[in-house]
């Protein structure tokens, strides 16, 4: 299967990446080669094979549905926000979304 530079630009946009113009042409060529490799799978009959997401076929482990509070929630928030690019009053700052 081939992929066009236009499809690359659209998929990149969905993944919040900017790839267009000459770069999209180049990337399409390389990803085309990867998809060609991947397409080797299509030759195999898997009609009766159950897909496998976990190698041990494990299922999600559940715990009691009860909130777990850290010992000092405010401290945790402060600690986590110290490494944020921009915060104010305990909130993360991003560019204005609505005027």
């Amino acid at each position: 299967m081939t992929i066009t530079p236009e499809q690359i630009a659209i998929t990149a946009g969905l993944a919040k990446l900017k790839i267009d113009g000459d770069e999209a042409i180049e990337v399409a060529k390389r990803i085309g080669a990867i998809l060609e490799l991947v397409d080797q799978m299509q030759a195999v009959d898997t009609s009766n094979v159950e897909p496998m997401a976990n190698s041990l076929d494990a299922v999600q482990r559940l715990r009691v549905d009860a909130a777990i509070q850290p010992e000092n929630p405010i401290d945790v928030r402060d600690t986590l926000q110290q490494i944020a690019p921009a915060t104010e009053d305990g909130l993360y700052l991003v560019p204005k979304v609505i005027d």
Binding site: T46, V49, E50, P51
Partner: peptide, 14 residues
């Protein structure tokens, strides 16, 4: 064609 197929092939490999 891709993700589901790959997970089926994954089971064959296992």
């Amino acid at each position: 064609a891709y993700y589901r197929k790959a997970q089926q092939v994954r089971r064959l490999i296992k």
